[in-house]
Design a protein around this nucleic acid. Structure first.
Length: 291
DNA sequence: GACGCGTGGAA
DNA sequence: TTTCCAAGCGT
């Protein structure tokens, strides 16, 4: 190709990715499908910086699904630490068990089989299929939705998620070659994470600034943010406090000790029951411990 | 489609 | 200080 030949959006994004991509452990060749799957679950709603050390520790302890499945689920919850949304740890453990039972301890390479696994939804199934196996499937996360909203649609922010529409829009950006398509998905996510960010997009550093519908329109403001849901004082916070106490204890924690951590009895009990319902806590006598 | 579900860093 | 938000999933 002549050096001055016109390039497409995909070429520009891929070229930018080639020089700007972060060196993340789950992107290295040796990560393997299990590593990719573990990273994707950890990255669900949790920033990369916080996932990095957790991922390393997890993979060192459980290099394969079979090794994780052989340990009690509570060990997964403990290892999860403060990543947040600890039900993900439980689901990842259940996922490992399902891999052993249904897939000979291997991560399947097709979307329907991935979707059937605990903790694996549309995003993660497509991400594993694309990044671990080079499948040509669109990978749509919040970054990709934002990049498409701006560059293609010309809006400041992505609207509500719409699976069918989002997948179709992302698919339209993918090159025909499967391996290149997978790289394109990673590149779009990286662009959203590093340049086309939610709060202060760095348009001057964007490889497709001159093609971006939103930029060309003068970066019109988006609609007002929805009210953020409160956290302090919610059951969610109480669950976090109570589970952290059990997680960080050697053995169990007595109900008396838990009373000291959250004084409102009705709410404390509601949180404890919901943690039991989720399988994150087990009650034995007057003690709570991990499953 | 709306909601519940953690945590902590940055602006 | 408060608010925003970070590679979603399951119900």
């Amino acid at each position: 190709m002549p050096h001055d030949a016109p390039t497409g959006l995909a070429d520009d994004v891929l070229a930018w990715f080639a020089r700007s991509a972060r060196d993340l452990p789950w992107r290295r060749p040796g990560a393997g499908p299990w590593g990719v799957l573990v990273s994707e679950v950890m990255l669900q709603q949790t920033p990369v910086a916080r996932v990095l050390p957790a991922y390393e520790g997890w993979m060192r302890r459980w290099p394969s699904p079979a090794e994780l499945a052989a340990d009690p689920p509570g060990e997964a919850v403990r290892m999860w630490g403060r990543l947040g949304y600890p039900r993900r740890a439980l689901r990842l453990h259940a996922c490992a068990a399902a891999l052993v039972e249904r897939h000979d301890g291997q991560v399947p390479d097709d979307v329907p089989a991935l979707l059937a696994l605990p903790g694996v939804g549309g995003y993660t199934a497509h991400a594993v299929a694309a990044f671990a196996f080079g499948r040509r499937v669109p990978v749509v996360d919040t970054n990709v939705r934002r990049v498409i909203a701006r560059a293609v649609t010309g809006h400041a922010d992505a609207g509500p998620a719409s699976t069918t529409r989002d997948l179709r829009a992302a698919e339209a950006l993918l090159p025909g070659d499967a391996a290149t398509a997978a790289r394109m998905s990673a590149a779009l996510m990286e662009l959203g994470a590093l340049v086309c960010t939610a709060r202060q997009p760095r348009c001057a550093a964007c490889p497709i600034m001159d093609r971006c519908a939103w930029y060309r329109a003068g970066r019109p403001a988006g609609t007002a943010r929805r009210r953020t849901q409160p956290y302090a004082g919610t059951d969610r916070q109480v669950r976090g406090i109570l589970l952290a106490a059990v997680r960080d204890a050697e053995d169990g924690v007595t109900t008396t000790e838990l009373e000291g951590l959250w004084h409102k009895g009705v709410q404390r009990n509601r949180a404890l029951h919901s943690l039991e319902d989720d399988g994150l806590l087990v009650r034995k006598g007057d003690q709570f411990h991990l499953p």
